[in-house]
Each structure stands twice: as structure tokens, then as C-alpha cells.
Nucleic acid binder design. Sequence first.
RNA 1: GUCCCCAUCGUCUAGCCUGGCCCAGGACAUCGGCCUUUCACGCCGAAAACAGGGGUUCAAAUCCCCUUGGGGACGCCA
Length: 465
Amino acid sequence: MTVRTRFAPSPTGSLHVGGARTAIFNWLFARHAGGQFILRVEDTDRERSTEESILEITDAMEWLGLDWDEGPFRQSERLEIYQKHANLLLDSGHAYKCYVTPEELDEKRKEAQSRGDVLHYKREWAKLNEGPDVPYVIRLQTPDEGTIEVQDKLRGTVTFDATEVDDFIILKRDGFPTYNFAVVVDDATMNITHVIRGDDHLINTPRQVLIYKSLNYEVPTLAHVSMILGSDNKRLSKRHGATSVVAYKDRGYLPEAIINFLSRLGWSYGDQEIFSKEELIEKFTLDNVGKSAAVFNEEKLEWLNSHYIKNDPPEKIAELVIPLLKENGLEVELDEKLIKIIKELSQRAKTLLDIRDSINYFYASEIEFEEKAKNKFLKSEIKPVLQDIVDKLSNLSDFNMDEMHKVFDQVMEERELKLGKIAQPVRVALTGGTVSPGIFEVMDILGKDEVIARLNNAISVIPNE
RNA sequence: GUCCCCAUCGUCUAGCCUGGCCCAGGACAUCGGCCUUUCACGCCGAAAACAGGGGUUCAAAUCCCCUUGGGGACGCCA
């Protein structure tokens, strides 16, 4: 039997990192097994589900490179299937109609609560209000005693007492299925073989097992992965800052960094930290998935991101940076100059935005000097030195790094200055600030004319003694 | 409150299933050093954990129990 996994988000917001991790695990598991990965949208909550959100989720998945083989299916388009299954259960006596109103139920629930209890509804008020035109829900008739066992691939057998499970609703009065029912009907009819999902669903699983059994469907292999927590050990939420995948995209993160990072949250392969997508597919198995919750560690994500920025081909990084520059009003082409710049800047960037924010002086027609840098390094005594450098550089017929080195060596020797004394003023002259790639690299990128122009410009702004 | 899950450095984790090779390994972050024309990168090094208590055993991070701690769930939400 071919492996079929699924990712089933509810479209009530954009894809957050927790959901992305679940999607990644399912996707990796399917790809590893050469099976299929299905996308299903669980939009039975009519109040909160939006089309926009579906688009946001699929966009994020595409950006991450999580391709799906079927779907996105919408549960809202499968109502007949759920109703048919509900009727099946009605006919077989596994389910019954219940006429209690939500308000009445609320009251009962409050009563129970005031007794310090939880309402465990076992069909006692089903016939209350019964009548031909009275709206009703359909509930599953659950066992009154005994236990319900859940087989979990990660946690073994988990046993629940039947009294813990009440006669839950499978079909709401609006004819929509509830989550537990829709999930089971879908997973069964879509032939899902492996359900990998968050830990928070483990508590739902006895209910789902009951539905599978009542419907005579086989229970798929279940694996409940533990959740991702914020730095305060609470379930990751908006409170913790950026939690959506697009937020990270917008902050200059690379999809491979996110995939790599999220894969390693709850899964590991010995001591290895860096995984390409292909490697993940090859190495991912449920055996190496851990059971304890993992804290989302932004610093490690950042480290991975900087790793990929450093090690990805500069052409690729350049292509990602170009649109960011455009947003800032800087139109640049993917040429040799940009590649050289990226090679340098990617060494010191943690995100694509770091590159975007430190690239300006390479393209500026006029250098803006940082006040502090100018005051510290562009002083009158350096003026003749800069002039000397301009003269010597002007004479170079071949403006390459070797020749530049020779020029600087010569100046250093003649004037008995250390490179540091010369390099910083030159850096300020060329870039306007004190932080940049190596000075010779910068000169190489700018080219002879621009270097000389900028040095001359700096000389002109230095006051005479 | 009830039920369910979980428990190794601050964080992600290896080791646990199949006890001894573990006075516990790697990575991020931190701190120190080296490199150096700035900032980074890189390299070297340091500090840092088996939650506690009982068992079982010649031997326990590894198996069992209890306690504690953390998380999750208790909806006509998903």
C-alpha cells in the first residue's frame, strides 16, 4: 500500500511555524516513502474560515517548497459525504439525533462546572424538545464503560476511560460536520495511511477511533508529534512575535533555513545540523522523532539562515536581493558587480535584509559620510596620504587587487604607516562609514574611476589645517 | 479540578528501546583566545545538563514506581 499523508490546516489565518513543522513532517514522510502528500483545508468553521487564508497557506507552502499531490480539498465542498456517513451511523444505531439546544447545554455545563465537574453528556437529554420540525444535531453513541485504546507510533498504546468520552456531536445543526467527524471521514475516504499531527490532537483521538470503528474503517497509523513552544515554554502564539512563515520570509529568511530548522525541532539525525531538502527526504523517519516539546529558538534559525546565505550560490542570493532593493528604490541588474558584492556581503549577513541594508554605497552616486566616521578618519593629516594614493592608483594600467596591494604597501613604507592607519580613511572615503568588506575588495568592486572619484571627493571635503 | 502527554547543558538535541564503551557527545547562544585593514567569516578553547526520591541490578541517563515540574485537552473551534 502506498503511503499517503496529509496536511490539514484550518484556514483561519496564515501558515504559522507550528503548522509548517507538521506539514514538513508529513511531506518528508510521504516523499521518503515515495508516497503522496495531500492538502486538505478544514473549513467547517464557517465563521472563521476565509478564502484569503487558504491562499496565504498555499503561498507559504509553495514558498517553502512543500508540494502536494492532491488538493487542496475543502471540507465545505464535501458536506454530502459527511451527511451520508452520518446517516450510515444513524441507520446502524451508532449515532442518534439530539434535540437539546446549545443554550440548554450551556446551562448544564455551567451546573457541572459549579460542582467542579466536567459535563459528560451521555444521551440523557436527547429527546428533550423532540419534534418533527425541531433542529437537531447528530451525536455518536459512545461506550459507557471500558476503555478506548489509541495506538500511537511515537507513544505506544494510550488508554482512555470510556467515561471520559461523552456522546460528542458529529453533525452540527447547520449540517456541517464537526472536526472529529470530518477528519475521520476524510482520512478514511482519502485513503490516508499515516496521520502525523500535533500533540494537542491526541486527546481527540479516542473519539476518532470510535468513529473509525463505528464506520468499519481501518484506523491509520497515528503519530502525535509534540508541540512547539515559545521561549516562555508556552504554546507558541502571536505573543511570541513573528510566528507566521511569511513573517520570516519578509524578514529575509530563506525557505531552506526554515525547513532545516523546523525539521530539527523534534527530529534529529545523530549530530548532523545542516540538511538539504534531499537529505531530509532521504533521512527522515518517524523513528527519530522525539516525544518532548521543543522551544522555538530564533537564534538557531538565524544561524542556519546565515549559513545558507553564505553557502548558497551568490547568483541565487543576488536574485533574491534584487527585488528587495527595488522596493527601496534601487534598481540593479544581476551582473558581475552584483555577484561580487553579494559574495562579500553574504559573509556578514544573517538575513537578506542585512544585505539589502548594507549595499547602498556600492551604487550610490554620491557618498554620504557618517558624521562620526568623517570626524574621526577624514582629518587634515590624512589628506596628503589620500592624495598620494590617488596619484599612484591613477597610474595603474591594470586595476587589480595585486596592484592595489602594491600601491598600499608602497605608501605604507614611504610614510611609515600601518595599513590600519590608511585603510580606515580610505574605507570612509569609499563607503562613507567604518564598516565594509575588505578595502581591496571594495575597490575592486567599485572600479578604478569610481575609486578615484570618491577619494578625490573625500579629499575635497577634508578641511585644510 | 479531571483526563492525556512529556522530562539530558539557557535552547535544539545524541545516548535510552537492546543497562556497562557516558565523571554524558554535537549544535545555537554565552565567555576567552587566534586571525585581522573595519565589521563579519573562520579557527582554537572554556563554562554549561542526566528534575528529586525510592527500587531492580555486580552495574542505571538508560528498566520499574512515586513525587515534582512543564505542556496539552476538557466547545454545535479546529
